[in-house]
């Protein structure tokens, strides 16, 4: 008997990996979050305790850190969208060879390790770094601009730099798929370039924009190294707190509760952003292959 093979079956290995690599650890976190810790014996004690969840909801530090991650992720995604969009659309107009060169140049920063990039930023933005030295040399400043390094500005500048390629690539692929005849038709019917952009190009690239927003939001909100090593005293993140609770404090229940809360809230916000973007007519047209 011949085996009937459906395309959907190709997803089975990935589904298994997701279950093993994501759902099971999450289930473990749920269980750990209701356990207790015996700090005298340094052991996790199986229990059904709401202690860590009470701490989660009553200590404002956790809400503050999660809120900070959401704002940081959303701000970075928004800026990446504004800056990345023109770059992505410009790339569609390049000759094929230059598109290849452009994509390589775009991804070049990602080929270096994160820690290398972090120390490079310190050299560029430090008190005795390139930017301050240049500004001093031109007589623009007398004292170094301290806010350039170890501040929220630094954190978000570097988060934007690190994640911009993900936004540009997603929009670029979406823009490449636009049927150019639609733009020509709009122009033939009297639309100004700006109208053609807002009525044809932008709506049809919203799926790419949505993917970019989802990716950049998740990466920026979940980053730990950049805020920790470049954000100075403002570099506290929920990720660092989770690391501290799991490692140093041996408080696995609270760490689990914080991890789950962070996951749920980030997922809710990311889904909200993407849902809003995909409700635009253009996105619906792309998914329905032309039909609104």
């Amino acid at each position: 008997m011949a085996l009937v093979f459906h395309r959907a079956q190709l997803a089975v290995p990935v589904a298994c990996m997701l279950i093993l690599g994501c759902v099971l650890p999450l289930a473990v976190l749920v269980v750990f979050s209701v356990f207790e810790v015996d700090l005298d014996a340094f052991t996790l004690v199986p229990a059904f305790s709401g202690q860590s969840w009470v701490q989660m909801f009553t200590n404002p530090v956790f809400a503050f850190l999660i809120g900070k991650a959401v704002v940081s992720g959303a701000g970075t995604a928004m800026l990446a969208g504004f800056i990345g969009y023109p770059i992505a659309v410009s790339m569609t107009r390049l000759p094929v060879l230059w598109k290849g060169v452009g994509s390589i140049v775009l991804l070049t920063p990602l080929y270096t390790g994160e820690i290398v990039r972090i120390y490079a930023w310190r050299v560029v933005l430090g008190s005795e770094g390139l930017v301050n030295a240049a500004l001093k040399w031109f007589g623009v400043i007398d004292e170094p601009l301290k806010f350039l390094l170890f501040s929220p500005f630094t954190t978000h500048l570097v988060l934007l730099y690190n994640n911009l390629p993900f936004m540009v690539l997603a929009i670029w692929i979406s823009a490449e798929l636009i049927d150019k005849r639609l733009i020509e038709a709009a122009r033939d019917l009297g639309a100004r370039p700006i109208d053609a952009f807002f009525k044809v190009i932008l709506p049809l690239t919203t799926p790419g924009l949505a993917v970019g927003v989802f990716t950049v939001f998740a990466l920026a909100a979940g980053d730990m190294m950049t805020p920790s090593l470049l954000g100075g005293t403002s570099g506290a993140t929920p990720m660092a707190m989770i690391d501290n609770l799991f490692g140093t404090a041996f408080d696995w229940p609270l760490a689990s509760a914080l991890s789950l809360s962070l996951l749920v809230i980030l997922f809710a916000f990311a889904t909200g952003f993407v849902t809003i973007l995909l409700r635009f007519d253009g996105a619906r047209a792309v998914f329905r292959r032309g039909a609104l």
């Binding site: 005795e128 920790s228 100075g232 570099g235």
Partner: peptide, 23 residues
């Protein structure tokens, strides 16, 4: 004290670097 600090140092190599670069 927090606003007075340039940063919290993580490793001694990190702090040495911060002294060396005038931070």
């Amino acid at each position: 004290q927090k606003p007075l600090l340039r940063t919290y140092w993580q490793t001694i190599g990190d702090l040495t670097n911060l002294f060396a670069t005038g931070e």
